[in-house]
């Protein structure tokens, strides 16, 4: 899967904005939005929030978790735990990137947040690599990966699954008469 497609999925998340225009309720296929009144916070999907922001029609209210103190806590927990700690949002990385790139003026301490989220990401990816390594070393058949986000899986998916499939093939070929004699798509 393309990372851009994961980002696309993250744009469906809901974020609060404060519009500076007024507009009646909109009846979208995916649900109703609005009504929009200047100064009154309203919940919209991220794709719309970013579009309005780019046209300078709103201020984005950062999600609750996008806060230096909360993220520091999460980072500490992530470093302390051996397994993957719960993340504030299933799209935390993508949302941080999108919101900080397009609306950094609405987010207090944007740079600190960027660094913190990057730290959390790095810690988690290091864990992911480590567990992939032990998964392979111990020839496991399944693993439980709580709290792993789509973007994180996506960084490892094709490489990891292809390697596993290939090793599986090598292992199974060591036994005689196990092949079905048909071409397979690896």
């Amino acid at each position: 899967m393309d990372p851009a497609e994961v980002e696309f999925l993250s744009e469906k998340e809901i974020v609060k904005i404060i519009p500076n225009f007024s507009l009646d309720k909109i009846y979208l296929i995916g649900g109703d939005l609005g009504p929009f009144n200047p100064g009154l916070p309203v919940e919209v999907p991220v794709w719309l929030a970013l579009n309005l922001k780019q046209r300078q029609k709103c201020r984005i209210v950062p999600p609750e978790w996008m806060d230096v103190e909360k993220l520091e806590e999460i980072r500490e927990l992530e470093r302390k735990e051996g397994t993957f700690a719960p993340v504030p949002s299933p799209y935390y990385m993508e949302l941080t990137k999108l919101l900080l790139n397009h609306a950094s003026d609405n987010i207090p301490k944007a740079d600190e947040i960027r660094t913190l989220v990057k730290d959390i990401w790095d810690t988690r990816i290091a864990k992911l690599r480590l567990s992939a390594d032990s998964f392979i070393n111990q020839q496991e058949a399944h693993a439980k990966l709580d709290n792993l986000t789509l973007m994180e899986i996506n960084t490892i998916r094709s490489f990891f699954l292809d390697s596993l499939n290939f090793m599986y093939k090598l292992r199974s070929n060591m036994q005689p008469a196990s092949s079905k004699g048909k071409a397979m798509d690896y």
Binding site: F135, Q139, E140, A141, H142, A143, K144, L145, D146, N147, L148, I153, F160, L161, L164, Y168, S172, Q175, S178
Partner: peptide, 30 residues
Amino acid sequence: LVEPETDDQREFVWSCAVDLNVEVCVLVWM
């Protein structure tokens, strides 16, 4: 149940780990 990987590879069945608290699993046909 998830069965451990075995060397018997003639007939495969799909087994999977299903648990509310399991977010994601890596699986193999066993």
